[in-house]
Design a binder for these strands. Structure first.
Length: 487
RNA sequence: GGGACAUUAGCUCAGGCGGUAGAGCACUUGACUUUUAAUCAAGGUGUCCGGAGUUCGAGUCUCCGAUGUCUCACCA
């Protein structure tokens, strides 16, 4: 064994305890009355009362016959004052052997130190878990991003702000559920394993079911199954679930992420615009208590109404090119693209080039919440056509911090038009990966889906905004990592 | 996929022109009964990310590879 001194000493301490019949791993239970947070928040009520609590030793200051240490439980850190004359010679010398990282249970009296810190004067202490590895340094914490993601449990112990991000994450998702439930939405769950790779321009993950001996796909969206439920008469539904996209990874994309989709029968994209504003404001009010959010020094104002621009208006404003002046003229669009240095492929048409202009000139400017609506039909196969402009759709996306935060439309419910558009999309994807049409979805539309508004929200993007996080990896406990090689 | 940067003790980091590796925390021993990044004294940390090359000699220079961070590209 080539263990270094720190590891060796801790193992020897454990061996000694085992030999003396006091193996800490034999402990099964410790009845703690309070958490550190409960004690600290209501400290006056406990003045000079005996309490019990448990936690991990995070710092130790031994001063001969008396010592201070800090223990940390789920939410807070509290100071212990340990004296030999209160604990007894044997227990006190045991305590001196405890290491930072060990987990102890204690009883003691609350008191305030001369320096004014709320503390516990310990009457008894028992070792509940022996830590065999050293924790990172108390002052700098764990900084190495690779280690923080791979050993998130250590990150959570030593970097308190990390825990706070994930507590906020949980509050956000709880608030979303509350809001949807208050509006009469039913939460549903649909399968993660799909038989077909359908819809959405994203490559799927493939897997295999052994009993049926069939290839299956991890879902890349929730959309088609939820719309089938709308057909089935569940008029207001939402799902919050993991989806999987086999695409690039960066600070805004992780291969698996949490998507929320919701559908409301008899609503349309304007209903969905209201919902987007309302959800963000409800979460802001309930989680942060303000609708002005400080993100890396920029103040994001979530107060509704948000700015609403058609894609054509937005492109005109930020690039100076008016696509209304050459509607559906592919050659004029290509000429404009050349003049404005927008990269286009030879087979692209007016709508695709409009979208390219949007991505090149507009998206990066959309810092404050902004709805962009009337997307071109070529890139919106599941949205209804605009009645007056059939080359555009009743679709919007909304942007905050130049990032797409959600995507919504008046759902296309014409089964004939839908099938044609899915076939067109499938053809355009031919050869890239296997892509098929969900005939059952078409069948459902033939049974009849009411006019419906639907939206998808990237939950991590929202959490990033609310937790001031610049990377999606900072709001996921275990982001996707390459396996460590043996070098 | 391209580019830049990083990788040295358990952690955070320093290592000038190529000459057998350094600090703080943590750890061990001792002192200390209100400290809080406790203090004081003493002690030893190591596959310098991996591999190859240049060299009398490589943590340092060159090449190949690994992982990460940022960034560009791709991506509803």
């Amino acid at each position: 064994m080539d263990l270094n001194e720190i590891l060796r000493v801790r193992r020897e301490k454990l061996d000694t305890l085992k030999k003396e019949g006091r193996n800490p791993f034999d402990m099964t239970r410790f009845d703690r009355e309070y958490t550190a947070k409960e004690l600290l928040d209501n400290f006056d009520k406990f003045q000079d009362k005996e309490v019990s609590l448990a936690g991990r030793i995070m710092a130790k200051r031994i001063m001969g016959k008396a010592s201070f240490c800090h223990i940390q439980d789920g939410l807070e850190r509290i100071q212990l004052y340990v004296r030999v004359d209160e604990l007894g010679e044997d227990s006190y010398s045991e305590f001196k052997k405890y290491d930072i990282g060990d987990i102890v249970g204690i009883t003691g009296l609350t008191f305030v130190t001369h320096m004014g810190e709320k503390s516990i004067r310990v009457k008894s202490m028992v070792l509940l878990t022996k830590s065999l590895q050293p924790l990172p340094e108390k002052f700098h914490g764990l900084k190495d991003m690779d280690l923080r993601y791979r050993q998130r449990y250590v990150d959570l112990i030593v970097n308190p702000e990390v825990k706070s991000v994930f507590i906020t994450r949980a509050k956000i998702i709880k608030a979303i559920r509350e809001y949807m439930s208050n509006l009469g939405y039913l939460e549903v769950e649909t399968p993660v394993l799909h038989n077909q790779a359908t819809n959405a321009n994203a490559r799927p993950f493939c897997t295999h079911q052994n009993t049926l001996d069939i290839d299956m796909y991890l879902r890349i969206e929730l959309e088609l199954n939820l719309k089938k439920l709308i057909v089935g008469g569940l008029d207001k539904i939402f799902e919050i679930g993991k989806v999987f996209r086999n695409e690039g990874m960066d600070t805004r994309h992780n291969p698996e992420f949490t998507l929320m989709e919701f559908y409301e029968a008899y609503g349309d994209l304007y209903t969905m615009m209201d919902r987007a504003e309302q959800i963000y404001c409800y979460v802001a009010d309930n989680v942060l208590g303000t609708r002005q959010i400080d993100f890396q020094g920029q103040i994001i104002n979530l107060e509704s109404p948000w700015r609403r621009l058609t894609m054509i208006e937005a492109v005109k404003e930020y690039s100076g090119v008016d696509f209304d002046s050459f509607t559906l003229d592919d050659e004029a669009a290509k000429k404009a693209a050349k003049e404005k240095n927008v990269h286009v492929e030879s087979h692209w048409n007016w709508g695709m080039i409009l979208n390219a202009f949007f991505e090149e000139y507009v998206e990066k400017n959309l810092i404050q919440p902004t709805f962009i609506y009337q997307y071109p039909i070529e890139i919106s196969p599941l949205a209804k056509r605009n009645k007056d402009k059939p080359h555009l759709t009743e679709r919007f996306e909304f942007f905050i911090l130049a990032s797409e935060m959600g995507n919504a439309f008046s759902e296309l419910n014409d089964p004939v038009d839908q099938k044609e558009r899915l076939i067109a999309q499938a053809k355009s994807k031919f050869g890239e990966y296997e892509f098929t049409i969900d005939e059952d979805f078409i069948n459902a539309l033939e049974i009849g889906m009411p006019p419906t508004g639907g939206m998808g929200l990237g939950v991590e993007r929202m959490i990033m905004l609310f937790t001031n996080s610049s990377s999606i990896r900072d709001v996921m406990f275990f982001p996707t990592m390459k396996p460590e090689s043996n070098g």
